[in-house]
Design a protein around this nucleic acid. Structure first.
Length: 116
RNA sequence: UAAGUAGGGCAGAUAAUCGCGGCUGCAAGUGUCGAAAGACCGCAGGUGAGGAAAGUCCGGGCUUCACAGGGCAGGAUGCCGGUUAACGGCCGGUGGAGGCGACUCCAAGGACAGUGCAACAGAAAUAUACCGCUAUUGUGUAUCAAUAGUAAGGGUGGAAGGGCAGCUUAAGAGACUACCGCCCGCCUGGCAACAGGCGGGGCACAUGUAAACCCCAUCCGAAGCAAGACCGAACAGAAGCGUUGACGCGGCCCGCCAGCUUCAGGUAGGUUGCAGGAACUGGCUGGCAACAGCCAGGCUAGAUAGAUGAUUAUCCACGACAUAACCCGGCUUACAGCCCUGCUUACUUG
RNA sequence: GCACCCAUAGUUUAACGGAUAAAACACCAGAUUCCGGUUCUGGGGCUGGGGGUUCGAUUCCCUCUGGGUGUA
């Protein structure tokens, strides 16, 4: 990913949970917090309750792929955490892409929204 | 053809585009960092999860710690032989159980070393007389009571004192006899478990439970790659120097403080452990087999918040279960379906 | 990743291998009361699932499932 890196430390996740804003739909929850950096940092969290290892890895890949392909749409300087919920077990790529754009729209962090 | 039984194999494929982790090569030094080596970035090539990667139920390698030697405790295993680095695994036998059969299943040492337990029922549970049978005595002559003998019969129970038949007897009883069983000894076959045979004991041992304690035999030191090894900021620490005193204490020196050097420690972090192996593929030889040996071939993931995905097209059986985390050998459990081979039984045809 | 523990009424706990599984609270029904509370009586369990040992298993053994703990 050109403009982004991943969110790694547990303390960073906790910081986003405490101070960030959240929106959700049926499949995902999205937390957003400004980080005062030039790049975005993306964290993906899938609980063990969602499924076994294969399902959890698959969901992280779908989310990462969806974000990668739509990266240009997002503003920079943000910490984003996406959490998968239970119904995401059988989610497809297109649903994931739609969900991420929808949640980004709610947060008003998409470039189109800020420009308009 | 149908039903069954045993074993083995596959685990969506192909193409294009975008994307991810290692590796190799190239270019650049005038893209960024760095004194340099090099790292990042870029381009190209090649490579990148499983039969169970799972559960963590066993065993081993490897590492650190402990350790003269031996024992106790604790744990595990348990017919015999083989195999293996090792195993509770596997293979081949023995015995038992099931099936017409192919074949399958069995924690399968010891209950005459000892101790414990066996509810309820039943007279009695390891020791006995409730009913019954028999004898004697008393009453008395239908019978009743007491004493003694008796495990053939009844009933209870998961289990009732070797089984069954006969002889004997007052009635009975291995008290005695035949067959079977049990125990002991010998012979034959087998490495052995064991099988077969002969002789004796005459039943004294002889219900079940050892996944109750236990006995016997064999094995086991403990912890685990977040093990361990190396490098190593920052903060704090120790020792030395004190040329220079910018700041401060001090009238000044010394000293404190500050500065510099060295040291140990080993935190954040990094490197390694970490992918050439009791491995894999193919062939040959030995062995019934598990397996072993030899030859040839190639190198076949190595992440560290953790890499395999998405889209499009075509095909079909329409894709199940499920993601390495130090590595191997097993076991157990999950699984859409498909393919191949051996064997058995039944029916039909030749 | 590694090392462990637990599972019994709705909840918290008991239990010697011998059963119709016990107690407290909670729930439901009935009685008492003008009504409610208190009190009294009654009801509801495949002992997490499946096998095995045993005459007999909540208990012993094996194996799955679901929870939880420690370790950076």
């Amino acid at each position: 990913m050109k403009f982004s890196e991943s969110l790694k430390k547990r303390s960073c996740f906790q910081n986003v949970y405490r101070n960030g804003k959240s929106y959700a739909n049926r499949f995902y929850v999205m937390y957003v917090l400004e980080n005062n950096l030039e790049t975005n940092r993306l964290g993906i969290s899938v609980s063990k309750k969602v499924g076994n290892s294969v399902i959890r890895h698959h969901i992280t890949r779908l989310v990462r792929e969806a974000y990668r392909l739509q990266e240009g749409m997002f503003n920079s300087g943000l910490d984003i955490v996406i959490i998968a919920r239970m119904p995401a077990k059988n989610v497809s790529y297109k649903e994931t892409e739609k969900a991420i754009l929808y949640l980004g729209n709610l947060h008003q962090i998409l470039k189109n929204d800020t420009e308009c």
